Measured scan of single mutants.
Amino acid sequence: KKSYVLIKVKNPKTKETHTIVVPEENLEEVLKALASQPNVKVVDIERFP
């Protein structure tokens, strides 16, 4: 059974918020990819039960 993680990201320029759902096993690479985006800020990470 896969567990999923909900990542909320915000664009500081446009103030838009997006929610991305990723499998927990991919969380680290997704966070690394997001960290390299200049106008993306991770605001929240939630685990799915």
Rank of each mutant, 00 (worst) to 15 (best):
L34E: 00
V42T: 02
P38I: 07
V42G: 01
K1T: 10
Y4L: 05
Y4V: 03
E29V: 10
N11H: 06
R47G: 04
V21S: 05
T19S: 08
L27H: 02
V21H: 03
T17G: 03
E16F: 10
T17M: 11
N26G: 06
V9A: 02
V43F: 04
I45V: 07
I7Y: 00
N11W: 08
L34W: 03
P12I: 15
V30H: 03
N11Y: 10
L6T: 04
Y4T: 02
K1F: 13
D44R: 14
E16L: 10
L31T: 01
V22E: 01
A35E: 08
N11M: 05
R47H: 08
S36G: 09
S3H: 13
T17I: 12
E25K: 05
L31F: 03
I20E: 01
K10A: 09
V43I: 12
N39L: 06
I45Q: 02
K10D: 04
T14G: 03
P12W: 15
V43A: 03
V43Q: 04
L6F: 13
E16N: 06
K8P: 00
V43M: 11
E28Y: 11
E25D: 08
N11Q: 03
R47K: 08
S36D: 06
L27Q: 02
H18L: 11
T19Q: 06
I45D: 01
N11R: 04
E16R: 14
S3L: 12
P12C: 15
K2N: 06
H18T: 09
L31W: 02
T19G: 04
S3R: 13
T19N: 07
L6S: 04
Q37C: 14
K2C: 10
A35V: 05
E25W: 07
N26E: 10
K2Y: 06
V43N: 02
E25C: 05
P49V: 11
E29N: 09
H18V: 10
K15F: 12
P23H: 11
N39G: 10
A33M: 13
E29Q: 12
K41G: 03
K41N: 06
I7Q: 00
Q37L: 12
K15C: 12
V22I: 09
V43S: 03
K1H: 11
N26F: 12
A35I: 07
V9N: 00
P38T: 08
K10C: 14
P23E: 10
P12R: 15
K10G: 04
V40I: 10
K10V: 13
K2W: 07
I20G: 00
K8G: 02
K8S: 06
H18M: 12
P23K: 09
